[in-house]
Design a protein around this nucleic acid. Sequence first.
DNA 1: ATGAAAGCGCTAACAA
DNA 2: TTGTTAGCGCTTTCAT
Lengths: 332, 332
Amino acid sequence: MAHTLEDIAEKSGYSRSTVSRVINGEPGVSKKARQQITKIIKELNFHPNQAARALATGKINTIGLLIPETVNFIFTDPYFQLLAQGISKACENNDYALLLWLTEPEIERSSIKKYLNHGIVDGFITASINFDEPMIDTLLQSNLPFVIIGRHAYEFDLNYVDLDNLAGAELATQHLVDRGYKRIATITGPQDMFAGEERLTGYCNVLHANGLVIEENLIIEGDFLQESGYTCAKKLLAFKPDAIFAASDMMAIGAMNAIREAELHIPEDIAVIGFDNLPLTAQQKPPLTTIHQPIHQMGYLAVETLLKVMDNPDGEVFQTIIRPSLVTRQST
Amino acid sequence: MAHTLEDIAEKSGYSRSTVSRVINGEPGVSKKARQQITKIIKELNFHPNQAARALATGKINTIGLLIPETVNFIFTDPYFQLLAQGISKACENNDYALLLWLTEPEIERSSIKKYLNHGIVDGFITASINFDEPMIDTLLQSNLPFVIIGRHAYEFDLNYVDLDNLAGAELATQHLVDRGYKRIATITGPQDMFAGEERLTGYCNVLHANGLVIEENLIIEGDFLQESGYTCAKKLLAFKPDAIFAASDMMAIGAMNAIREAELHIPEDIAVIGFDNLPLTAQQKPPLTTIHQPIHQMGYLAVETLLKVMDNPDGEVFQTIIRPSLVTRQST
DNA sequence: ATGAAAGCGCTAACAA
DNA sequence: TTGTTAGCGCTTTCAT
């Protein structure tokens, strides 16, 4: 077995308590004691047993990351990895461990419940796309603090970190308007998702504000994935748009494929703008103009928010909405 | 706070030990006691405190997943998610929690070391692409049992789960030969990676066995990513291959883009075969023939292997090599 | 500034 | 079949 506090105490000639104080950086320890003990800890490469610590303090220093794996999404979109990176980094910096929960949608509730009540995390973050209300109820019942990445339509007072999708969509559409495009089409996200809805609203707002007609034919609903961008764009082409705002980069990439297949040129014949600023966008031909969503940062922020929530048992609610920005590239 | 064993003991009129036995499904408890206690546990939705349990048993029922995030790779390839899914599923089925460690390559050692010695996992799985030997030494020094997904060139007696890359490449190349292609090119993986090396060897083996010339011009080294498939294919086209074996699906997809850009048809002008059988392959136009690597299953297997290792302290080494299979689609 | 001792919630001998 | 008891390795009062 590994060393224990007792070992360190013995070797240093001090008591367990003093060693504990040193490890936790508590005051009330003589400089000499601190030095000696620190030295021995280093030498023996000692690390306190987390289980014992957790038992004594009631805190386990671990947060959970709950991802209902809606298969297609997770598999095709780099979104999750960026998020995971940000979250992981934040955990590392705050000395928290990160527990990964990938749950299948079907058995969602039971499986989650089990974990939630096991007391193996101090709180959790969830990045789900298609919550239903019972699902949120389940989460609330756990009595664990949690933070949601990406809002939903529900009007609960939940902790969340989210992007300003409305502003992003407006940015994108306004950019197209400013460039002089007149027949601006959009491939939307699913209209039962908050982000999908808001991005469409932003598009409409801007057309309206600029006195452009909102033409039904130029609005078509996708599902955020590449394939749907391709098929939607094929349909749109019949109505001769001069620009397409795709509500996700993956759909924009799909749309670009369709446009190229139709032997049209980007942006001369049709401009394309995406949303998310995935690393892939820069590699497109031509590189894709898009709206920057700082996914990594949102992950990081979610952890920091959760930590705040955890030492704020007075029930304060933390909601952060991040502003996106425009990344101009050669597709517009 | 949540309930404790003691609470259940009190309410049921039995002792802590008996309740503990019931919870752990141990024998030697009367039917009546078991029923009563089970009922109360359900009613109170009691779950034993994991920290206490871990402290008492010395086992924490958690395994770590160590992923050195070589940024480009992780971000572009669905490989990791498939793997994570398989691993997560296996953990769930075996009542283990899964700790996620994404470590930056640079700070690899120190960061890992900290985690490794914290005693917060019973063992870990690592899916790294570019290990160096010092890295492996670090892992070994932790004294934690671990399983590697994907072998490396080192001749250690390590536990691993890997694909038979050689057989896969042979399958792919032979398929092209069987279809009558004569000028078969290959876009290889990085030659400093074991998988990259083996997949090239398999290609050469088959050409050789079929009396075909191995032409330098038809072999070009990529890095498994889509972009490199594209650029490599562009170069290859000058040498008029009638088929291309790409050592990864992502490269195959890149190659297909290059071929289409050259206004050539797949497979009439050039056939393409990939490797991995990512979900994406089926959606290509035309759908991509490829070698099936059961990534999900490998993840699952890795966990099972790790569990075996963990209750086999006699140092038995477990090495599993999985056979790939051919998935024929319209690109060949 | 330091130490003694109790206790966190559980498991696992050992007794009964 | 059941209960008693002694830890697991740490934190945290409370003395000193």
